[in-house]
Design a protein around this nucleic acid. Structure first.
Lengths: 216, 216, 216, 216
DNA sequence: GATGAATGAGCTTTCATTCAT
DNA sequence: AATGAATGAAAGCTCATTCAT
């Protein structure tokens, strides 16, 4: 079982009690949705790929959209998990005195997670423009909780003089752009190219640090 | 006629000789594709919105996909137009001694363009994951010509000591991420929020400059 | 101009006053109807092949079916022309004392005609099952006039003791089957095979003669 | 249940395991294809006549053409069945010393078969000019196997001095023309006329015998 | 007379969903 | 729980025909 399969396993199969068939359906749907998009994937195609009858899909998921949601929602939850731990500030104080250490740890951790869930991440960013429900859920969770947390973090390091004086939302935006820009380039746009991942992440952090550090 | 309509006009109606009906079809298609995605938009819906018979669409565009291509291709061409001007280096030397000036001019120009063609840009980035032909065209034009040019520009400013020593592709990646990150946040994710555009662009450039400048 | 073109010319262009465009339409229609059938041929296809606008077809022929009729009707007329000459019996008495001579002359003449109009003959027998109007016209002309004549001819040779005693309609049926069987095999089923036409017609007549002659 | 329904039953419903709906679809398709031709028959018409939803047709037959093929192929097989029995020559020797007996038995048997499957035979001869696949199948089976067999039979009776010396293919052609000519006249051209079938078949055989017998 | 853009009904086919087994 | 035949609405697309130019 590959690393990715383990993650999918973890996302869908441990927490809930999914039947064997359900797991196959979910795996097949992830595959197809990621490749051709939700709208262009037919339920019969999913059924065939999963090796189940068409009716079986609808026994577990009332509609095709419900299947999409069942796939994307837990990914979103896991993606933002690190932000919702209670004592984040304590962690920051204890473990990450310097912004650079925090960024390094944080970026590497989240890249690891996304790398293992690339098809799911792909579905997420591909479908969010088309699915209002998805957007709603996303805004409710990310925009509310995560942004709030991120602002605190930014202010935390600004207070320490490690981040330039700038509206926190702007800091978050440029930092997020830089990080997601790397992930999208690395895993979606040019996955087949040869990447020196360590060096590339190093440079990305260097750029971020330079961009965010107060000028001397 | 709105600013956006003017740009669509410019992209489709001046250069080519489109009939009145064709213009309506294109406008309706852009509208729907941007909103619900290509796959989820039906040709009957486009016809209705355009006020033409469904058959009329297929008289002008053999297939639905051809309609998509007819819409996206010229946008792509216009988007990369500044990179394919012949004497770009001369322009850089004469007009933009400093990187900051170049970035400012360049970013503002392209943002202006995208702002006026947001639905088209939206279709472009939303459909590129699903349309192999689109990806093909994109790679052929962007990856080949534009990347080549951008590398030259980066090396140009690196030679002048204005950009940090770093692989040009990495520089391009972080810069592009930052710029597109702004555009996506500003016009796609939170268009309804109040933005102080000038200040925000200013800060984005400041971040870019700090991130890319050789450390002192 | 080929032999066949000359015949088509004769059928359509001399008698009537067809414009140049009309001739092209008719030629294109014959081509396509023969190849793919009336129902499976689109008027746009005919227009393209004829090098005229779609509207032009409908200026000359109110409907697609009218075009078919305009093509088939004169062929039918020419096909049965030999039977409607007034003094057929005089001809028979003077020129064809023996049945064999008559058959030979008659078969060769009609084969010649059909050979030169094969696409038209093809359309005729292919479409007659599907076009009630065609069948109507056919019955009215053939079944009425031609059968009448053929019965006279059969009785003529029966009176002379050259055809077996048998209901004339049966004689006509077996003779027509034999002749059309040859034409269909020769020109429609296996046109690309090598045929020794003279010998084959000779044998066909021999078979007919043997089959129809009173036994000795 | 009529005689014809029994035969259709036999062709489609015993051998294969067709669902009830499938049988209805096939019956409706045969009906319409025979009457108006394949190209001029719409699937919605077939669905309505069969009393099923249009989608049901395409669940069983991927395309309209596949439905046509599924209808015609087994008919073709049954039509040529008598020729592919292994010990045909033994049968000829034992049962049909005289050509006339063979012809009588053979013709009556095949006429019986075709009479019971007239709509299918109709579809077959009406569509073979338009369907290349059909023609291909036909040539492969008929032209190869059946012609081979027929040549043997002809040579068999020629060796016995019961058929005139003539190329076997010519004999086959004139005999087939005569037989099919009868069937087409009897059942397709003038089915409503009064026919004395026994006498007519008798005369047809007489004509054939006379035509094919060596002259004395 | 000729054009060809425009039409809208109708075509084949696909689809998400239901339901009897 | 699982199946897969059945559905019928809707999809993309084609067609014969019309009509303003």
């Amino acid at each position: 079982m590959s690393q990715q399969d383990k993650m999918i396993e973890e996302l869908f199969h441990n927490a809930d009690e999914l039947t064997e068939k359900q797991k196959k359906i979910v795996a097949a749907a992830i595959d197809s949705f990621a490749e051709k998009g939700y709208a262009a994937t037919s339920t019969s195609e999913i059924a065939k790929k999963a090796g189940v009858a068409e009716g079986t899909i609808f026994r577990h998921y009332k509609t095709k959209k419900e299947l999409l949601m069942a796939i994307v929602a837990p990914t979103m939850a896991k993606l933002i998990a690190p932000f919702v731990i209670k004592d984040l500030n304590k962690v920051l104080n204890q473990d990450f005195e310097r912004l650079e250490d925090f960024l390094k740890a944080f970026i590497e951790n989240r890249i690891q997670f996304l790398k293992s869930n690339m098809p799911l991440f792909r579905i997420f960013i591909q479908e969010i423009p088309f699915q209002p429900e998805l957007r709603e859920q996303f805004k409710e969770h990310i925009a509310q909780k995560v942004l709030e947390r991120l602002r605190q973090i930014v202010e935390h390091y600004q207070a320490k003089g490690q981040i330039i004086e700038m509206p926190p939302d702007t800091v978050i935006r440029v930092a997020a752009s830089t990080i997601f820009g790397y992930i999208i380039a690395r895993y979606l746009l040019s996955p087949e190219e040869k990447w020196d991942d360590n060096a590339e992440i190093e440079r990305t952090i260097q750029f971020l640090m330079n961009g965010l550090s107060p000028e001397k």
